[in-house]
Amino acid sequence: MTQQTPTIISRQQNMQVRRKILAVASGKGGVGKTWFSITLTHALARAGHRALLFDGDLGMANVDVQLGLDPVHDMTRVITGRLAMADAIHEVTEGGFAVLAGRSGSGGLATMTPRQADSLGRALSAIAPNYDRVILDLAAGIDGTVRALATHAGVGIVVVNDEPTSMTDAYAFIKITKQKRPDTNLRVVVNQARSHSDGERTYGALRKACESFLHIELPLLGVVRRDPWVSESIRRQTPLLARNPNAPAAQDVEAIAANLLELEQA
């Protein structure tokens, strides 16, 4: 009896930590997942939350490139345990959020094993209590390392656009995540939509496939409109919310951040 209590407490803490970690996935690459992760983190910071963005695209890290950060740390050192994760964090002063990113100098991260990805996820869970929200930008694809990292997140945001390949790859990610971790809270963001109603149609098609074939409900978190300001801000390596917070895409992501926070209150 005395031995059970700590287990229960730590399990509750575990759940709390998992709920803080939001994994952003897409299945297919090129749908604007990394841009969305950065902007969502920024929006959460603007809403007064301490937010950390983790670049989980370990083979092709490019959060630092989009933000124009000088790669201060080599993530290989974190993976091999030679540098504490907390010491590798970079503060983005103009955004008010923290970033864990960095290229692998040796290229060793591209060949990371699922087990190494899992211990990276555990290290991330260990520093998560220092933040209100941790955004985990996953690599494209659904290989073992992506799945191992994704299991540490309590919420999964699946980013899609209206291309059929994006739809089928997102569906594959959803299917495999629900198989491995049925309690993951999955939500959809439609990016690069021509309009809100167009984005909702794209979401409707994905929802119908998931309901018919997987028998799961898949709520919509929001639609982000196609916006020339996005590529402009990426080219200038400046976060969109710093450059033009009134741009349509910026406002859409802020609405999504508000939506997320509201859902957690409920």
């Binding site: 149609r201 794209t202 496939a209 018919s212």
Partner: peptide, 22 residues
């Protein structure tokens, strides 16, 4: 097969259906 979405073709060629098979 199930129908995932139905819309007027944006290029004006009639109707566009997206269907899927499990």
């Amino acid at each position: 097969a199930i129908i995932l979405s139905t819309e007027d073709d944006p290029e004006g060629n009639g109707v566009r259906i997206t269907a899927a098979l499990n």
